[in-house]
Amino acid sequence: MDAETLRAEPERVVELIDHTNVEPDSTEAEVRELCEEVLEYGFNAACVVPYHAELASDILGDEADVVVVVGFPYGVQNSSAKRAEVEELLQYADELDMVMNRTAFTNGNYEYVVNDIRAVKQAVGEQTLKCIIESPTLSDEAIRHASELVDEGGADFVKTAVGYEGGCDTDEVRAMREAVGPDMGVKASGGIHSFEEVVEMVEAGATRIGASSGVDIYESI
């Protein structure tokens, strides 16, 4: 969906939103409320931590997707650990949002980064895999490079951030889009609170939005 369509049909913003609660102290009651809001407003998905994957799947059924984070929040787990996590979650998750191995990237071991993503994608199979690069911590040049590695590794989306280290901005999203070209998914996540901010992210190249403020976004139309 492009920004022009979104402005003409603002209620369709719900189709872009992964309504999110990935806080480490999230309760079952909070996740239940999150999923009920997904169903009430028609959001694309609920995004949760692995502990809550089964609960989210039970509540949403076939009505909306369940997105579960993997290797969260720093991506430092080895590939076999991430694969094991994925294999346990596939019965509940429609999409997996993994974190790039940030330590390997920082140390310039780009082959490791690509192989790590590729290994997780092999475990994910036909399900959608998004890879978080934590763009708020990177320069524009590093964002482009990380995005290219995510594409090389076979992920379906490159994603900005987990949301713990500051929000993303349109420059980050634009750099990601420029790096991966027009066909790969780009998910903007972190600090997005209003409809107008969603439009700006879509204009910059985002095709999916991760937000804990999904209801606020809809009500700001």
Rank of each mutant, 00 (worst) to 15 (best):
A206H: 06
V66F: 08
D183A: 02
D97F: 03
G185Q: 13
F157I: 10
T170H: 06
G214R: 07
H19A: 13
L138F: 05
L96I: 12
N109K: 14
V150K: 00
Y110L: 14
S213Y: 12
M201I: 11
A206Q: 07
V114D: 01
G108M: 11
S135Q: 05
N115W: 10
E15S: 12
V186Q: 07
V66P: 04
V120A: 08
E141R: 15
L90K: 15
E23M: 14
V202I: 13
D94T: 05
V22H: 00
E30Q: 15
Q127M: 13
K159E: 01
Y51L: 14
Y218S: 01
A204N: 05
V76D: 11
V180Q: 01
A142V: 02
S220T: 08
N109A: 10
K159T: 04
A155C: 04
E111C: 05
A3K: 07
V49M: 14
V215G: 07
M100C: 09
S212F: 06
V68Y: 00
S220Y: 06
M98P: 01
D65P: 00
V173K: 01
S26R: 10
S212K: 09
D58V: 11
D25S: 12
D183S: 05
V14R: 11
E219D: 11
D2N: 15
S220P: 01
E85A: 13
N101E: 08
E40T: 09
D151Q: 15
A211E: 02
M184S: 00
V38E: 03
R177W: 05
P182D: 15
H193V: 08
K121H: 11
G163D: 02
V158L: 02
G125P: 00
V49E: 12
E111G: 08
V120T: 13
D216A: 15
T103L: 15
V49C: 11
C168K: 03
G191S: 10
Y41P: 07
G191N: 10
V99S: 03
S79Q: 11
D18N: 13
G61S: 12
T5E: 10
Y51I: 09
E111P: 00
V120D: 02
G181P: 03
T137C: 08
N44S: 14
Y164I: 10
Y112C: 01
D156F: 07
E126M: 08
V113Y: 02
M1E: 07
E178C: 04
D97E: 09
G167M: 07
V69C: 06
V124D: 02
E219S: 07
G75H: 03
E28L: 11
A53W: 05
V215E: 07
E219V: 09
G205H: 13
V49I: 15
V199S: 09
I117H: 03
N44M: 11
R83F: 02
L60I: 05
N21M: 09
D216L: 12
N107Q: 15
S194A: 13
M1I: 10
Q77H: 12
A45W: 01
G167I: 06
M184H: 00
V99R: 02
L90N: 06
E196G: 03
A123V: 12
Q77C: 12
Y110C: 10
